[in-house]
Simulated assay, not measured.
Amino acid sequence: MSLTKREKEVLKYLSKGEKQKEIAEKLFISTHTLREHWKKIKRKLEVQTTNELIKYCNAFQSK
C-alpha cells in the first residue's frame, strides 16, 4: 500500500526533526489529525512505534 501525498508531507517534516505542533501548523491541520496520519503511516510501513518511524524517515532521507 502506498502513502498519500499528505502522508509523505508528514514524513518529510518528521524526518527533519520537527515537533508535532510545528508539523500540524505547517500543514494547517490539528495535532489530532496529525496523530491519525501517523497511525496510518505506521500501519502502511509496518512499524510499531514512533521511534521505528523516525528511523525509517532517517533511512528514507539519506537515500
Rank of each mutant, 00 (worst) to 15 (best):
W38D: 04
E25I: 12
T50V: 09
L34I: 12
H32Q: 09
R35P: 01
R43E: 11
K40I: 15
L34V: 10
Q48L: 11
E25C: 05
I29A: 02
S30F: 04
A24R: 04
L34Q: 06
K26N: 04
W38G: 02
T50L: 03
T31P: 00
W38Q: 13
K39S: 08
F28M: 04
E36W: 07
W38N: 05
K42D: 05
L34G: 04
A24H: 03
S30D: 02
T50K: 02
H37I: 08
I29N: 01
W38C: 08
N51G: 11
E46W: 05
R35A: 13
N51V: 12
E25F: 13
K40A: 14
K40R: 15
K44N: 08
F28E: 13
Q48A: 15
N51C: 06
L34F: 04
E25Q: 06
R35I: 15
W38M: 13
R35W: 08
E46I: 12
L45F: 10
K44I: 13
E36T: 10
E46Q: 11
A24I: 12
V47H: 01
H37Y: 14
F28S: 12
K26D: 02
E52Q: 14
E36L: 13
L27S: 06
K40T: 13
K44L: 11
L53H: 04
H37V: 12
E52K: 07
E25V: 11
I41A: 01
T33Y: 08
S30R: 02
T50R: 07
L27I: 07
E46A: 10
E46L: 06
K26T: 08
R43P: 00
R35Q: 09
V47D: 03
E52F: 11
W38F: 15
I29H: 02
K42L: 05
E46N: 10
K39C: 04
R35V: 15
T50W: 06
S30W: 06
K42V: 02
A24E: 02
K40S: 11
E46F: 07
E52D: 14
S30P: 00
A24V: 14
R43C: 03
R43W: 11
L53V: 06
E36I: 11
W38A: 07
V47Q: 04
